[in-house]
């Protein structure tokens, strides 16, 4: 609230007009000041930001030091939620599951989408068709995608095992196997996000000047030389950005897991947000769940810091 008052006041100080004679022109003057309008136009955003972001961020930090089930009185427990989390075997399992999920889905997704973007950048026909095709999963809801892929992974009449049988492989019972459920979830995730990353890469590729490739052609470079010595290095800011965003997104994965496997079998696909969701909205361990949210926040924060640091190094913006 203080901020708002300073805002409207500061406008008056900075751009104070000559004292206006009469009341009407004083009001009229006020409505020609930037400060007045800055305050009025920002008001909805400020209210929304305070109510649903800033206050909740502070509140959940506070909650993470309490024990509260929303029924009995809140109890201050200090750091014990965090201590308990570090000793909670389930949390350690879902933490490593999250790392497993991110560690495979991010690099694999980036490599595949980069190759597709390079292929699409070859001044090729049917570009619009390809772009649309790869974007279909991106615009579809995760619920729809999960329904379809559960069917695809069905061991008896699913498409995946049918195709695998062509090359003589008897596919596993994907979603009920502790070994194969996570790879199945990862595969679906990569499939869904491919088009999005591909488009960002495409934008990055279009920012690389043709003159580099022309010079390379004159020097008689092969395509893989051009790819490794021109495309990859010049695209690295984009690649880095996609990597960071993908990691942040995959640390927060929930829908995919919740819809396809409910975290099972035997928690083999349960991830941090899934465990957080269960604690908060199934068992109402609000303090414990808040501590988990802050550990997640910390993970995202570290990744974002790395992003800022690299940006400075590259001297962009």
């Amino acid at each position: 609230m203080k901020v708002e008052k300073r805002l409207s006041g500061s406008g008056a100080k900075m751009r104070g007009p000559a004292p206006a004679p009469g009341r009407t022109s004083a009001i009229k003057n006020m409505f020609h000041k930037d400060g007045t309008w800055a305050f009025l136009l920002l008001l909805p955003n400020i209210i929304g930001f305070l109510a649903f972001t800033l206050i909740p961020v502070i509140a959940s930090f506070f909650l993470s030091f309490t024990s509260w089930d929303m029924l009995s009185p809140m109890k201050w427990v200090g750091l014990s939620n965090y201590v308990e989390l570090l000793n909670d075997e389930t949390f350690i399992k879902v933490f490593w599951n999250t790392i497993y999920f991110a560690g495979i889905s991010v690099p694999a997704g980036i490599v595949v989408s980069l190759f597709l973007a390079v292929a699409l950048d070859q001044n090729i026909r049917f570009k619009k068709f390809y772009r649309a095709a790869y974007f279909l999963p991106v615009v579809s809801s995760m619920v729809a995608v999960a329904v379809v892929w559960q069917f695809i992974y069905n061991p008896e009449y699913g498409l995946l095992n049918y195709f695998l049988s062509f090359i003589g492989i008897t596919g596993p019972n994907w979603l009920t196997s502790t070994v194969w459920a996570m790879p199945a979830v990862i595969l679906t995730t990569i499939w869904k996000n491919l088009g999005f990353n591909m488009l960002i890469f495409l934008a990055g590729l279009q920012g690389i000047s043709d003159s580099y490739y022309e010079a390379a052609d004159i020097d008689g470079a092969r395509w893989h030389h051009k790819f490794l010595l021109i495309t990859v290095p010049l695209l690295s800011p984009t690649t880095f950005f996609v990597t960071v965003m993908s990691f942040i997104g995959s640390f927060q994965v929930f829908d995919t897991v919740f819809l396809m496997t409910q975290g099972g079998p035997a928690r083999s696909t349960s991830v941090i947000v899934h465990y957080l969701y269960e604690n908060a909205f199934k068992y109402f361990n609000m303090g414990y769940a808040s501590a988990m949210a802050y550990i997640l926040f910390f993970m995202v924060f570290v990744i974002t810091l790395i992003q800022f640091w690299r940006q400075k190094k590259w001297g962009v913006n």
Binding site: F52, T53, I55, P56, V57, A59, S60, L63, M70, I248, F251, Q252, V273, L276, A280, F281, M286, A289, S290, A293, Y294, L296, F297, V300, F301, T304
Partner: peptide
Amino acid sequence: MVPAQVTMIPNFI
């Protein structure tokens, strides 16, 4: 930058 999960619990309350 703030993950939605951080604000989710207070918002629910």
